[in-house]
Every structure is written in C-alpha cells, then in structure tokens.
Amino acid sequence: MSGLVARTGRHQQRYEAGCRLIAGCIPFKHRNPDEGSNENSEKVVEVLMINSPSGPGLLFPKGGWENDETVEEAAIREAIEEAGVRGVLMEFLGHYHFKSKTLQDEFSPEGSCKATMFALFVEEELESWPEQSTRIRSWLTIPEAYENCRHPWMREALKDGFSKWHENKISTGEAFPDQD
C-alpha cells in the first residue's frame, strides 16, 4: 500500500470558464448508538474531516480534478490521498463556487474554483496514506463538523447537500451499505 503517492503539479488540471475544477467528498460512517441507550435509537452519523496545513479549521478532502480521470475518480483519489479512506460514492451533493487565494494561476487569476462534492460511504480507513504526515483525521458529528468547518462553501455542502440527502435516505428507509 505504501506505493500510493499524492499527485502534484497543475499541468493536468481541468478548467472551465476561468474556474479551476475541484472534486471532493464528505466521507461518512454510522456509529452505533452509545451503550445504555434504547436499542431502537438511530445510528449516529459521523463525517470525516482533516486539518489544513495552511491554517485553522477543518476541511473535507478535495483537490483538483485532472484530465485523465472522471470527477468521481478524482473525488475518490482525494479521499485516499488526503484522508486515507476508501469507500463508495453514494450521492452527488452539488456544485459549490469559491475563491482560493492559494490557487490563483494564469488560467484562473481570480482563484475561482468550482467544486463538485459527493457523499462517500467509508468502507476502509488506511493505516498509511500519501498525506498522513501533514493531515490529522477527525470523525465528527454533523453539528461538530459544521462548527469546525473552515470554509463557508463546505458548511453549505454539509448542510444543504449532505444533511438533506442523508435525512431523506433515513426517512424513506433506504438502506446504506452494511458496516462491519
């Protein structure tokens, strides 16, 4: 597994109308209710966030969508590279526009970015992953994640994309993959 290496450089980056295209995901799992609670209690949803080497607050894994991959493949790759998790993309959550001070370049001088975000059901947490030396993983409840989220657009993806989709799945009784 140690053969995994994070991609670097921007020569493969995709752009659209002056926006750098970003792919990302909100990794999640279900935690069984705490001991002593009613056995009919709903499982608690936890989302995985990572620290940012460039400042305070937590982030969801995301990065540039490259020319040789689909947006889904890019989202899965970023989850492995940045957060060290593998899983199944369950749902497209939406497109989110933001400006990045660190991603300004000749193709996007304003730093405009358009992120395509997905819900990723985590099936495996890797013991080693490409960015483990600079990233710390944190499993948080949705309210905790919302509070600790560094970027407003990620908060929006969590609240308006992920939370609404997840509540709808539960209320309609649709099954999630089994977790061991």
Rank of each mutant, 00 (worst) to 15 (best):
I50G: 01
F92I: 03
H166Y: 15
P33F: 00
K169M: 15
G94H: 02
A175P: 07
R31H: 06
I50H: 00
H97Q: 15
S41C: 09
W129F: 15
T141G: 02
S133W: 09
R10H: 11
G94T: 07
A157S: 12
S171I: 12
F162Y: 09
P27A: 00
F60Q: 01
Y96D: 07
Q13D: 13
C113M: 14
S128W: 09
T141R: 04
P152F: 09
V5S: 10
K62W: 05
D180F: 13
M117G: 03
P33L: 01
K99C: 13
C149T: 14
S133H: 15
R86S: 09
A119D: 12
K99A: 12
V71P: 05
K164D: 11
E156L: 12
L48S: 00
A83I: 05
S112I: 06
S54K: 12
P177M: 06
Y96M: 09
L58D: 02
D68M: 07
W65K: 06
K101E: 14
V5R: 13
V44P: 00
K29H: 08
F118A: 07
A74C: 07
N51P: 00
E78K: 11
R77W: 07
K169E: 13
M154R: 12
Y96V: 10
K114A: 15
V122M: 06
S54P: 06
R20E: 14
E42V: 03
